[in-house]
């Protein structure tokens, strides 16, 4: 390929990327707009809360538990080099609440929820169910997208908070059972160092990640190509895009909250 050809290819890729960002932004604004005009579909919102929040608890809980445990082992091993093993409780707590709780929780929800939303809505699109909704005077953005996005934005912060607690418990169990910490001292250390801001910042991250996850699932589902292949591609794009966006948003939010 010659130089001009390469430049043209680069240009096309950048343009396509910018166009996609534009479309996703419009989709997001369009979704939020429906928050302010009736009708509202309460039953759909409730179903989405159960699906996204409640049913994600096991996955998020297990992830947090093992992460908390591993974190305690690593910090203990690392801290031992400076005779600083006592920092285990506080670093586990801060690490879980600020970073690992929201990021790993968000990624697990991205895998579980954004794929299922994209597959469901994509199948509805491919089988003309979205068209049928429109002809039945029901706006698919109101009926399908808004309840899912709203539910994820509300539920993921709570998932993150629960995940934080379970992760800290994982660290506690490893700390007291394997590393010989005194149970009462471990808990006191955790409580003393953890501030409310650590927890709320993680929950704000969770809300943003939840929004991203459901939005990407709906966006790629609604724009699914035709046939089974189209739905497959939509599902993959939803998971990949929401995962990358979560990590990027996490960096930006961390800068905003913690860079002095």
């Amino acid at each position: 390929m010659n130089f001009i050809g390469m430049l043209a290819h680069l240009g096309r890729t950048v343009m396509a990327l910018l166009a996609a960002i534009g479309r996703i932004t419009l989709f997001a604004l369009n979704t939020v707009k429906h928050l302010f005009s009736p009708p509202f579909y309460g039953k759909e919102l409730f179903a989405a809360l159960v699906q996204i929040g409640w049913l994600s608890l096991p996955v998020v809980g297990l992830t947090a538990f093992f992460t908390g445990g591993a974190l305690a082992l690593q910090i203990y091993a690392g801290g031992a080099r400076f005779n600083a093993e006592s920092v285990v409780p506080s670093i586990v707590a801060i690490g879980m609440a600020r970073e690992l709780g929201p990021v790993l929780g968000g990624l697990m929800v991205a895998a579980r929820v954004s794929s299922s939303i994209a597959a469901e809505i994509g199948t509805m699109k491919v089988t003309e169910q979205i068209d049928a909704l429109v002809t039945l005077s029901t706006n698919p953005m109101k009926y399908l997208t808004l309840p899912r996005v709203l539910a994820a934005t509300l539920a993921v912060p709570i998932l993150v908070a629960v995940g934080d607690a379970i992760g800290i418990m994982g660290g506690y169990i490893v700390g007291t059972e394997r590393l010989g910490f005194n149970a009462a001292a471990y808990l006191k250390n955790t409580v003393d160092f953890l501030t409310l801001a650590d927890i709320t910042s993680g929950m704000v991250k969770g809300a943003v990640f939840g929004f991203i996850v459901a939005l990407m699932g709906c966006y790629f589902g609604m724009n699914s190509g035709r046939g089974a292949q189209g739905v497959g591609r939509a599902t993959k794009s939803a998971v990949v895009t929401s995962s990358v966006m979560i990590l990027a948003a996490n960096y930006i939010l961390t800068e905003a909250f913690f860079s002095a």
Binding site: M124, T135, S137
Partner: peptide
Amino acid sequence: EREAFLARFGMLFQGGALFD
């Protein structure tokens, strides 16, 4: 106006398009 317009129509889709 979409809502009023579509309220006048009924449509059977080729594949049925039932909400599963």
